[in-house]
């Protein structure tokens, strides 16, 4: 009894402080997550749960047409989403960060300008770009016509070979401020002496970047890459706002999250298709496995290459 009292005297405040957060986390994070895991192993009739059906929902998603075609299509779109975004942020983003780190005139203005789109809601970004890219009266098309390049105007969002890339570029426009900000901080954290030593040894600016800046940035790049991966494999808003839940045109922009949404709640545009909770939950679990596995692998890799100055 005395043990309990002295333990409470020592740690009681911790319990008091942690309880509210734990209750909220448990109710709104842990419980929904675990219950949706269990949803995936039951058969569902609309929103009513029927019997336990083991891995049937997973087998349906992975092997039964058209679910399997949608699923693998969505994964390949998410993968392209990630690869292109990664390519843009580690070339253009890194380049801008290194330039900004030189603190040229107008530094503060450009720093803010590059970060600004990142502060906008993706719903706003999607709506804005959907209007700008409208082939009938969008500003992009009007601008091209004004300078005599009317032939270049295309229904970018309506063609299956351009729609996804267009959305990835719009996403990059909105996202790039974040990697730039993080890279900039990392570049500025590299001690001056390293660069000075390189210059004294006769290194060109490129050699300085290649052999001093870049190796020291690798852990940061790896961390941003993991975040990008998680973000891009969960991407939803842009496609939903710009192309609808069906990943129009004909699933060319369908992502795992839009596939999940459509399956869970029915596509409102096709009118009254009932949701299939069990199959949707299976898609959600598969997303969780993919993202969790790759992120865990990435985090381990990053920890191994951590640098301290």
């Amino acid at each position: 009894m005395r043990d309990v009292r002295s333990w409470w005297g020592k740690h009681g405040h911790l319990v008091l402080f942690l309880t509210p957060a734990l209750v909220i986390y448990g109710m709104f994070m842990a419980y929904p997550l675990i219950s949706s895991l269990t949803y995936s192993v039951y058969e569902w009739d609309g929103y009513l749960r029927r019997g336990f059906n083991g891995l049937d929902n997973f087998v349906t998603v992975l092997t039964r047409w058209p679910y399997n075609e949608r699923f693998w299509g969505a994964i390949s779109h998410n993968a392209l989403f990630f690869v292109l975004t990664f390519a843009i942020q580690t070339t253009l983003g890194l380049f801008v960060a290194v330039l900004l780190a030189r603190k040229w005139r107008g530094f503060a203005f450009f720093q803010a300008a590059y970060f600004l789109p990142h502060t906008l809601s993706l719903v706003v970004v999607g709506f804005l770009w959907r209007m700008l890219l409208n082939p009938t009266w969008g500003a992009v098309g009007q601008g091209l016509r004004r300078v005599g390049l009317g032939d270049w105007v295309q229904p970018w969002l309506g063609q299956s070979d351009t729609a996804l890339v267009t959305i990835i570029l719009v996403n990059a426009w909105a996202w790039l401020g974040f990697p730039i900000l993080v890279y900039l901080a990392a570049v500025q954290a590299i001690p001056r002496e390293f660069h000075e030593a390189a210059v004294v040894d006769g290194a060109s600016p490129w050699q300085d970047f290649r052999h001093v800046t870049l190796p020291l940035l690798l852990p940061t790049i790896a961390m941003v890459t993991i975040l990008t991966f998680i973000w891009d494999f969960n991407a939803f808003e842009l496609v939903f706002v710009m192309q609808g839940a069906s990943g129009s045109p004909s699933y060319a922009t369908d992502l795992l999250a839009t596939f999940f949404y459509r399956t869970a709640f029915g596509d409102p545009t096709t009118g009254g298709e009932p949701g299939q909770i069990g199959i949707a939950a299976a898609i959600g679990v598969l997303m969780l496995i993919i993202i969790g596995f790759v992120s865990a692998f990435g985090v381990r890799f990053t920890q191994r290459s951590q640098t301290e100055y």
Partner: peptide, 16 residues
């Protein structure tokens, strides 16, 4: 159909 019809959505159609 409208020019660039693959990029013309429902509200565009109504407006046209």
């Amino acid at each position: 159909l409208a020019d660039n019809y693959t990029g013309v959505g429902y509200t565009d159609m109504q407006t046209l």
